[in-house]
């Protein structure tokens, strides 16, 4: 494929897919180890009412209000989950289950009761995103990457997810030591003066920001898959957290690239006429990678599971 075809049609969706996958996979490593993996699932569900409320308040589907609404809903959900968990003294999974299904239901009801027929806002869009439509029509080839005029036409989702990814990387690098410490042994971390509650909340908020930024571009399926599949597959490849992070990034990028290419060309190779959803295919590839590592990964034995007391 030539640059004249690849750059305008495939470069931006591919980059957005890669950035979204990595931005979700990084915090996903800690969420999986903390047995909080489904919080990504929860977040991707709860943002729906936030987005609908933002639309009802402004009357347009604009990126700013949508992000604000989604972020607000995610934060409300996180607080609700923590409150139910602490006040009700029930396990976190149950608290999440209650909150995210309720909030998603509220979002669907709001969507039904309000007139959104004039805009592109429906449940399908929320699930699959619109990765394939995030094309860069101003580009004419690789040279456009250095052309300020053409660069102005880059889909707004690309810089947004890129900035999010940089933020996630900075958070992971700066708080690496306390994150690792408090994920392994929260009590001990507290005796050292680490504010584990604040850190745990910060991790969830960072995950929420990634989820919202990625959700906006690629829908909730890819978000759920990327929080869990690359980190879980990476865990089966190594017994060191430092290496696990590396593997999870490799798997996230591989899922994004393979998934995008297979969605665009796979059906054609098989003789079908239409492409399939890129987000769906990316999620599928990440699931296949997880399945392969679950069968053949070098570090599959669990010997040190905690004793319940």
């Amino acid at each position: 494929m030539s640059g004249a075809e690849f750059v305008p049609l495939s470069l931006t969706p591919l980059l957005i897919g890669i950035f979204a996958a990595v931005a979700c996979a990084l915090p996903g490593n800690f969420l999986v180890l903390r047995r909080q993996a489904l919080i990504g699932d929860a977040i991707s569900h709860v943002v729906l009412p936030g987005i609908v409320v933002a639309f009802l308040a402004t009357g347009v589907i604009a990126a700013g209000p949508m992000m604000l609404g989604a972020g607000g809903a995610a934060v409300v959900a996180v607080i609700l989950i923590e409150a139910i968990r602490r006040l009700g003294r029930i396990e976190p999974g149950a608290a999440m289950g209650v909150v995210f299904t309720s909030m998603f239901a509220v979002g669907v009801l709001l969507l039904e009761q309000s007139d959104t027929s004039s805009v592109h806002l429906d449940v399908e869009h929320a699930l699959f995103g619109n990765l394939e439509s995030l094309i860069w029509l101003d580009a004419t080839g690789w040279a456009s990457l250095l052309d300020p005029d053409a660069l102005r036409g880059v889909p707004v989702e690309l810089p947004r997810i890129a900035v999010t990814l940089v933020g996630v990387i900075l958070f992971t690098v700066i708080f690496w030591r306390p994150l690792k410490l408090s994920t392994f042994d929260e009590g001990f971390a507290r005796t050292l003066g680490v504010r584990t509650n604040v850190l745990g909340m910060a991790l969830v908020i960072v995950a929420a920001i990634s989820a919202v930024a990625a959700f906006d571009a690629v829908g909730s399926i890819i978000v759920i898959a990327m929080f869990i599949c690359p980190p879980a597959a990476a865990r089966l490849m190594t017994n060191r957290l430092e290496h696990q992070i590396g593997w999870s990034v490799v798997f996230a990028v591989a899922s994004a690239v393979l998934g995008y290419v297979l969605a665009g060309y796979g059906p054609l190779w098989l003789g079908a006429r239409d492409a399939v959803s890129a987000a769906g295919m990316i999620a599928t590839v990440s699931g296949i990678i997880l399945a392969i590592t679950a069968v053949a990964g070098p570090c599959r034995t669990r010997s040190g599971a905690p004793v319940q007391d």
């Binding site: 306390p178 690792k180 392994f184 971390a189 050292l192 017994n239 060191r240 957290l241 905690p306």
Partner: peptide, 21 residues
């Protein structure tokens, strides 16, 4: 028994946690 010993880390890394401060 309060921690998950399946956590992906080495013995020396756990001891180094004592040097966090």
């Amino acid at each position: 028994a309060s921690v998950d010993w399946d956590f992906p880390t080495r013995v020396i890394d756990v001891v180094l946690m004592g040097l966090y401060r």
